[in-house]
């Protein structure tokens, strides 16, 4: 079903599309998964009695695979969208900066910080200060 891995740029663009299609509906999920890439041949060998945790000391840093799906399965499997990309260790920092941007824009359904209460408080404070401003200049300072 998946057509191989995409480049990092393609992945981020497709992820953006995936988020925007989700935004038009009032329900649905998007799953993002990140994992160490261990499928290739240079993956750490499986555990042996001598080396019980071979993955603790990889010969070289392993790339990270990042997957995204819209979680459609079973009878809706035909609508399933699967995206994946492999990020090399050196590119992680740059990728995550852009990834964060895409997620911030895409996850618009989350609660915004509620500033209305803070504003009301500020207004009340100003009113108080305005009323007492003439007489209580010393108190303010």
């Amino acid at each position: 079903m998946s057509e191989g891995h995409m480049s990092n740029d393609e992945f981020l663009a497709s992820l953006n599309d995936l988020f925007s299609t989700g935004r038009t509906k009032d329900h649905g999920s998007i799953y993002l998964t990140q994992k160490c890439m261990t499928y290739s041949q240079d993956a750490p060998p499986s555990a042996t009695p001598n080396i019980p945790f071979p993955d603790l000391n990889p010969a070289k840093p392993l790339p990270i695979i990042i997957r995204a799906t819209n979680g459609k399965s079973k009878e809706k499997r035909a609508q399933k969208i699967k995206l994946s990309t492999i990020v090399e260790v050196a590119a992680l920092e740059g990728f995550y900066a852009r990834y964060a941007e895409v997620c911030k824009v895409g996850m618009s359904g989350l609660k915004k910080r509620d500033r209305s209460k803070a504003k009301e408080k500020l207004k009340a404070k100003k009113k108080k200060q305005g009323a007492a401003g003439a007489g209580a200049a010393d108190v303010k300072s």
Partner: peptide, 26 residues
């Protein structure tokens, strides 16, 4: 679990840090 938009960028930043740890053998 969270529902706050303000946390998203920090959480992704955390994911980035953890990803680096993953590749490095933790």
């Amino acid at each position: 679990k969270t529902n706050k938009a303000a946390e998203v960028s920090r959480l992704i930043q955390i994911l980035g840090r953890l990803a680096r740890g993953m590749g490095n053998g933790g």
